[in-house]
Design a protein around this nucleic acid. Sequence first.
DNA 1: ATTGACCTTCACATCAATGGCAGGGTCTGA
DNA 2: TCAGACCCTGCCATTGATGTGAAGGTCAAT
Lengths: 149, 149
Amino acid sequence: MRIGELSERTGTPRRLLRYYEEQGLIAPDRLPNGYRDYDERLVDRVRQIRGLLDSGLPTRLIRLVLPCLDRPCTIHFPDPTPEMLATLEHELARMDDRISCLTRNRDAVADYLATVRAGAPAPVPAVPPPGDGTDPEAPVSTVSGARER
Amino acid sequence: MRIGELSERTGTPRRLLRYYEEQGLIAPDRLPNGYRDYDERLVDRVRQIRGLLDSGLPTRLIRLVLPCLDRPCTIHFPDPTPEMLATLEHELARMDDRISCLTRNRDAVADYLATVRAGAPAPVPAVPPPGDGTDPEAPVSTVSGARER
DNA sequence: ATTGACCTTCACATCAATGGCAGGGTCTGA
DNA sequence: TCAGACCCTGCCATTGATGTGAAGGTCAAT
C-alpha cells in the first residue's frame, strides 16, 4: 500500500511515516516511480511505534528494541554484540520502572475517581478554621522513578 | 531545604526544578531573602514528576493528575468539575493503554533476551544461500497503541 | 492535454523538555 | 571586607517529535 492508505489506517500523518523511516524504524519498498510501498504488516508496526513513542521511548531506543519484537522468529538479527545486550538489559529495567511508575499513578487516579464518584462529592468543611488557609498536616506521596535518558 | 539540596537529593538540575515550578507542578515557599524553600515531601513529589515525565506524560497532564495523588487525604481539591472528571477518566484510559503497550513490549524484549542467553547464541546459517541477502519469510508483529495527545 | 488526487524532497516553524550562560543579590567564614 | 558558595531572574540554544508549505513528478479519469 502507499503512504496515504497507511496514514489513514494508522491515524498517522504522512509526515510522521516519513520521519519514522528517516529514523530507521520502518523501511518501505519503493515502487518503480519512487512512491513508497508499505507492506501490510507495517500497519501493526506503526501502531506499535506510536504506542512506544507515546510511552516515552525515544526513536533511538525503539530502533534498538524493534528487532526483538518480531514474534514468530525471535532469533531475528544475527550477532547481538555484548554491548547491545547490555543496553537492552538496561532498557528493559527502565521499561519496568516506567511500568511501575505508571501503574502506581494510574491506581492512584483510579482510586481518586472511585472515591469521588462513590462518596459524597468532597465534604467541604462547613466552617473552615478561621485565620490561615494553610493545610496543617502533610500528606506524603510515595511514587518515584529513575532518570537518565 | 533550598534548591541545591533538593537538586542533589532528586538528581534533578536546578534549572528543571524552576521549570517544574513555572509549569505549576510544585510551589515552594520563599525565604525572606527570596530563596526558594522546599518542603521535605517535595523530594518524593519531584521524583514522581520525573517518573511521569519519563513515562511520556506532558507537564500539562501531570499538573492535572497530581492533585489526585496526595494519598492520605484523597479528597484534596474541592470541586472537581464534570469536565475535569471526564478528562481524568480519559487520561486514565490512556495510562492504561500506555501500561499495556509497555508491558507487551517489555515482555517481548525479556523473551528475546532469555532466548538469546539460553540457547545457542543465534545459530547463524553456516552457508548463506548465495545471491540475495533478502529475508524470505515475514514475521508478524502484534503490538499496538493509541494516539491523540 | 488538462485536472485533481496522489506522491516526492526540501526546508522552515513549533512545542515541550532541557542545557547553558550572564548579570546580579545573599550569606558565611577567613 | 573580601572570597566563595549559594541563590535569583532572564534569555537564548538545542533536541526530539511534530506541523506546514513550496515546488514539482505520476497517474487515472475526463
